Simulated scan of single mutants.
Amino acid sequence: MGFVTGLIWWVLVCTKVFALVDCIRRKPYDFEMAGTLPKNIWLVILPLSIFVDIVVRQPISILPLLGTVAALVYLAQTRGSGY
């Protein structure tokens, strides 16, 4: 893995870890108010996306990109909603 690819990988993994920590700290009521998926579903999706990143270690392949999109959707829906 080259320097740039490694740097992209680390940034994306840190984004997913940030989303997971944020999800763990939020109350289930916040998810209802934001109109998004329940907390339990996000607590399955986000760790799974981190696991896929660690196993695949290629930030520009389909499964890690899907995990990145999921983490960004989570952050946009919950943190962006103000709840």
Score class of each variant (00 low, 15 high):
residue 9 W to G: 03
residue 61 S to K: 13
residue 23 C to A: 15
residue 56 V to G: 03
residue 8 I to R: 06
residue 40 N to Q: 12
residue 20 L to M: 07
residue 42 W to E: 02
residue 78 T to P: 00
residue 58 Q to N: 13
residue 63 L to C: 07
residue 14 C to K: 10
residue 55 V to R: 11
residue 37 L to Q: 10
residue 2 G to Q: 05
residue 37 L to V: 04
residue 8 I to V: 15
residue 42 W to S: 01
residue 73 V to G: 00
residue 17 V to T: 04
residue 11 V to N: 05
residue 49 S to A: 15
residue 23 C to D: 02
residue 25 R to H: 09
residue 28 P to V: 10
residue 66 L to I: 14
residue 8 I to W: 08
residue 69 V to A: 15
residue 61 S to E: 12
residue 69 V to W: 12
residue 70 A to H: 03
residue 21 V to R: 06
residue 29 Y to S: 14
residue 51 F to Y: 12
residue 67 G to L: 01
residue 36 T to N: 07
residue 76 A to K: 12
residue 30 D to H: 14
residue 54 I to V: 15
residue 21 V to H: 01
residue 18 F to A: 07
residue 73 V to I: 15
residue 67 G to T: 00
residue 28 P to E: 12
residue 13 V to W: 10
residue 5 T to Y: 09
residue 57 R to G: 03
residue 20 L to K: 01
residue 3 F to K: 08
residue 38 P to F: 14
residue 10 W to F: 12
residue 76 A to I: 08
residue 64 P to A: 11
residue 14 C to T: 08
residue 10 W to H: 09
residue 32 E to C: 09
residue 26 R to W: 03
residue 27 K to F: 09
residue 40 N to Y: 14
residue 11 V to D: 02
residue 33 M to H: 11
residue 77 Q to P: 00
residue 43 L to E: 05
residue 61 S to Y: 09
residue 38 P to N: 13
residue 16 K to A: 08
residue 36 T to V: 13
residue 10 W to K: 09
residue 77 Q to V: 03
residue 53 D to E: 12
residue 13 V to I: 13
residue 55 V to E: 06
residue 82 G to I: 03
residue 45 I to V: 15
residue 30 D to P: 01
residue 16 K to G: 00
residue 68 T to W: 12
residue 19 A to W: 01
residue 72 L to Y: 02
residue 34 A to K: 04
residue 68 T to R: 02
residue 17 V to F: 06
